[in-house]
Amino acid sequence: MNDKADVLQGTLILLVLRTLEALGPLHGYGIARRIEQISKELLQLNQGTLYPALLRMEQEGWIASKWGASEKNRKARFYSITAAGRRQLTKETEDWRRMSTTIELFLGFEPGSLAEEGG
């Protein structure tokens, strides 16, 4: 795994949790599409990396998964956020805000369009 993917992995969890919180149960492809839609120009998501991240989050108990029928009536695995996942989301959101504020202060940037993408 290269440096870029590593950085992505930490934020990926935040993005997935946020997506599931906002949209309710989704299959992996739906999560990937949603993340790409919202962050189209900013994030280059390697969709495959989503699945190890989903596995890890499920092991941590932040999300739960269930096999069900997709919109086109095909078998798909649906992920949903758990109570522990919501707590984790709150925590990671705070961490992320604190981190980005710190870095923005450090660089002397005005909080601009970048800040909106997290929330």
Binding site: H27, G28, Y29, A32, Q47, G48, Y51, S70, R74, K75, A76, R77
Partner: peptide, 10 residues
């Protein structure tokens, strides 16, 4: 199965 579903959807 999950990966196949993903790619086919795409």
């Amino acid at each position: 199965e999950e990966v196949r579903f993903h790619v086919e959807m795409q």
